[in-house]
Design a protein around this nucleic acid. Structure first.
Lengths: 204, 204
DNA sequence: TGCTAAATTAGGACATTGTCCTAATTTGTT
DNA sequence: AACAAATTAGGACAATGTCCTAATTTAGCA
């Protein structure tokens, strides 16, 4: 593993454990038995290191989102994977607002990602409508609100879990928020769709 | 206005404008044309100052939540007030996760507040059922999920707005998230309840 | 009016942080 | 062997929260 790779992966571990702002450059360097100068050789600033990690999560999620979502079952499975990705990079989700507020470059970058995510979500909903899992008449005027809803949940579930469900296991937590996603879709689901939501809940 | 009062209210302003972690003790003192020593005379640490602000928001929200919520209309009006309170103290909401993670005393304190908030929400739902705005049969197995839902929205709407809707006006933003709340209740609303949700949306 | 405690000034010290810098040394590749 | 990349070594800088002491002003009270 290259030095750069070691840096990123160890930084991610430490950031996840202690929070980004509580892991100093000196601490990271010492942990890897190297000098601060060598860290800044690869990443001039701490933000550059964080951006590298952000990009990795973005790429990971992009792949996950490409998965087939023709049924509510597969949609929720895809989100289970997405939630696991986010947990792997939880330090980012927990510092998200600060990261975006701090530097405009983050913000601009994220706006594009955000738009793509929403567009993908709309296409997933269309797909579930086509496959008779969601009722086109029921959801008609509510698509944008459902999209906003799911976006909000998937952005902040980790933050809320940290605050309110710190003693839950990861599996419990993810199950809870997948249930919440199911709850959002349920009112607009067809009979078949409702069955899939119920089965998914029982399946855990 | 007492010095302590000046301190708290100016700190809140500066925290809201620039973020808690970007307003230093020296900066706050200089802004008020006093010395750092005098700030620490009232608040030994910056966290103590933040805790004072946290408690003020808590008290403000506690009063707001006592309001009558026998209809969906009044429920949403109450949340409009709640959202305005939160906006007044937005610096806290934006740094919430960090604040709670940082010091265990925050976390323990908040757990109690959180439990009370959820309990109040349950009682509001019961109230809306009694007044024939929510259907008891429809919402039966979904109360806890609805509670989780509303809790999530009211905790993180400010964070998401900062990230995604920074160019919206406050009114637009609050309207959007009140719509989202309406959306959560809508599927479980009676005919009268659905009418109230629709009216509330049109009313803005 | 005087006394006394509270409030405030003034200024510095300390450790920690991210960042930046230079010079010397090691490592790896051609 | 030569040369660039990688790494060490150590320090400097400004900013932060916190802590400290001494002196001075302000305000309430007998």
């Amino acid at each position: 593993m290259s030095t750069k790779e070691k840096l990123v992966s160890r930084a991610l571990e430490l950031f996840n454990e202690n929070g980004i702002e509580y892991v100093g450059m000196r601490e990271l360097a010492a942990d890897l038995k190297m000098r601060v100068g060598n860290v800044t050789y690869y990443f001039a600033t701490k933000d550059d290191l964080v951006i590298e990690i952000i990009n990795r999560l973005r790429d990971l999620n992009s792949k996950t989102i490409e998965a087939d979502c023709s049924s509510i079952t597969s949609f929720l499975s895809m989100y289970r994977q997405l939630f696991n990705n986010q947990y792997q990079y939880r330090c980012l989700l927990l510092s998200f607002v600060h990261l975006v507020s701090r530097h405009p470059s983050f913000a601009g970058n994220y706006a594009a990602t955000d738009a793509r995510r929403r567009e993908a979500l709309r296409s997933h909903i269309t797909s579930m409508i086509k496959n008779n899992c969601l009722s086109t008449s029921l959801i008609a005027d509510h698509v944008e609100l459902v999209v906003s809803h799911i976006t909000l949940i998937s952005r902040f579930w980790i933050s809320e879990a940290r605050i309110s469900y710190a003693n839950w296991t990861l599996e419990q937590t993810i199950a809870h928020y997948l249930n919440l996603l199911g709850e959002v879709l349920f009112p607009y689901a067809t009979v078949e769709g409702k069955k899939q939501v119920d089965d998914f809940r029982k399946g855990k």
